[in-house]
Amino acid sequence: MNVFRLAGDMMHLLSIVVLLLKITGIKSCRGISLKTQELYLLVFITRYLDIFTNFVSLYNTVMKLVFLGTSSAIVYYMRYDRIIKLTYDKEQDTFKYLLLVAPSAVLALATSHVYTVLEVLWTFSIYLEAVAIMPQLVLLQRTQNIDNLTGNYVFLLGSYRGLYILNWIYRFFTEKHYRQWLVWTCGVVQTIIYCDFFYYYFLSWQNNEKLALPA
């Protein structure tokens, strides 16, 4: 494992910690898209089905369990916690699941490397992860007064994706036969989706103003 991969994973973990701190600390999930969170939960479930059959390292197994556990907790809080669910912007969070899930499923069936259940679901998770942030970005555009934690959450997630690209570049030059066009294409698409957000995030940081995305 190289330093980019580790840093990427830590950013990912940190983004989840920031989100959980926001939700449980101030008992509010304002500005957070439940749809994106549920899609991430689906991504983790479909990708980590190999948790018992494909042992890579203790680090991987623990991280998989952490991601599954924390994303389940976030969805649980937003859906069922008596106080927190009241702060969810349900009317604004209108992105259609099917718009993201259906194309991912079709593409997974069409392009899977091997046709086993695990492999098709893994491919599905790669496609779905690339676009799962979209409901969140749409919701951010609609939210006035985005709070710092929400802005930082999305920034950390975007950084995780960027660092993974550096990790792939590193692996491409240091490992034999490391050719993963599917993963790379999806990863680059996913990172491009964040570009607009990054632009406004840095602008607000530079001008010391509150983050706001133009509609």
Binding site: R5, D9, H12, D50, N54, V56, S57, N60, M63, K64, F67, H113, W122, Y164, N167, E175, H177, Y178, Q180, V183
Partner: peptide
């Protein structure tokens, strides 16, 4: 081997 390499990330 290819499978392992493809699936060793998170």
């Amino acid at each position: 081997e290819l499978y392992r390499q493809q699936h060793d990330e998170l």
